[in-house]
Simulated scan of single mutants.
Amino acid sequence: MLLDGEAWQAKFRDFRSEAWRLETLPAYNVPQEAEEIRVFLAGERIDPHTHSNEYTEDLKRVRREGKTKGRVHLVTRPLSEYLRYEFMYYLPHAWAGEDIRIMDVTERRNPLADVQDYWMFDKSEVVLMNYEADGTQISREVYEGDVTPFLDYQRIALAESVPFEEYVKGFDI
């Protein structure tokens, strides 16, 4: 079953305890971000101490409700321009309550090399994120099989990653 619109939004509103994502791409082609990326590449940066938007406010709501939201992003160095842009937002997102972790596979074997992006809700439902090679999203699809492999992928990603703030210590984002 493909997910879009209200059904997709409901996943983030209605999960009971945890929403978690594995991100594997070096860039995502999101038309709504094009202007922000252009400004970022021109040298402008947000102030992570004061940045707030709908996403950070929702993260605070999730935390107040005793739920968690997290992700692990697989990366290789040098970071793509898109990742540098995305990392700029990760700091205020982490401060708002998202558990963001980085799994750098630059100089080691990637145990998740064949795993595609996905969201997992409450460790019981998986939504596969389908992308073109350039990072353009094709669809979101509810996975209808056994979620056990995705629980294993999450376990591996969490064990082999580091918290975002630890990862970026010492380099300019």
Rank of each mutant, 00 (worst) to 15 (best):
T24P: 15
A159E: 15
D146L: 05
S124L: 07
S17L: 05
W119T: 05
Y90I: 04
T148I: 09
P111E: 06
K123F: 11
D58L: 00
D134M: 07
T136E: 06
Y153A: 12
E125L: 10
Y118N: 12
R45F: 01
R155N: 14
E33H: 01
K169A: 03
L74A: 14
W8Y: 01
S139C: 04
G97M: 05
P31W: 02
F12H: 07
T50D: 13
F121L: 01
V127H: 07
S161R: 15
V162Y: 15
Q9T: 10
G170W: 11
G43E: 03
E54T: 08
R71T: 12
R45L: 00
R77Q: 15
D146P: 07
Y89R: 01
T56R: 07
I156Q: 03
V72Y: 12
K123W: 12
R84V: 07
V75Q: 02
I173C: 03
E44G: 00
F15K: 09
T50L: 13
N29D: 12
T68F: 04
R61C: 05
A133C: 11
E65H: 13
R64D: 14
Y28S: 00
P92F: 12
G145E: 00
P92K: 04
Y143C: 06
N29C: 03
Q116H: 15
P149L: 00
Q9C: 02
G145A: 05
E166S: 09
N53E: 00
E132C: 03
E98A: 03
Q137N: 12
G5I: 05
A27P: 11
D117T: 14
V30R: 07
V168A: 13
L25P: 13
P78Q: 13
I138D: 08
G145H: 02
S139F: 01
V126G: 12
V105M: 15
I138A: 05
V30Q: 06
P92G: 06
T76H: 14
H49T: 13
V72M: 14
M88I: 01
V126N: 11
E33V: 00
I46Y: 03
P111N: 07
R77E: 15
P78L: 08
R61S: 09
A19Y: 07
Y131F: 14
L151G: 15
V142R: 09
H93D: 07
R63P: 08
E86L: 02
V142N: 02
R45D: 00
I46D: 04
H93G: 07
E54L: 09
M103R: 15
H49E: 14
P149A: 03
S161P: 03
T148R: 12
E86H: 01
L22M: 11
V168K: 08
W119C: 05
V147S: 10
P149C: 00
E54A: 08
Q9K: 10
L22W: 13
T76I: 14
T148P: 14
E144C: 10
A96T: 10
Y143N: 10
T56L: 10
H49Q: 14
I46W: 04
E107F: 15
D58N: 04
D146G: 13
N110I: 09
Y85I: 06
A42F: 07
E144S: 12
T76N: 15
Q116F: 13
F87M: 01
E166C: 06
D4N: 06
M103T: 14
R16Q: 00
M129F: 09
Y143G: 08
F171E: 01
S161W: 11
F40A: 10
G145D: 11
L22Y: 08
H93Y: 09
E125K: 14
T148G: 14
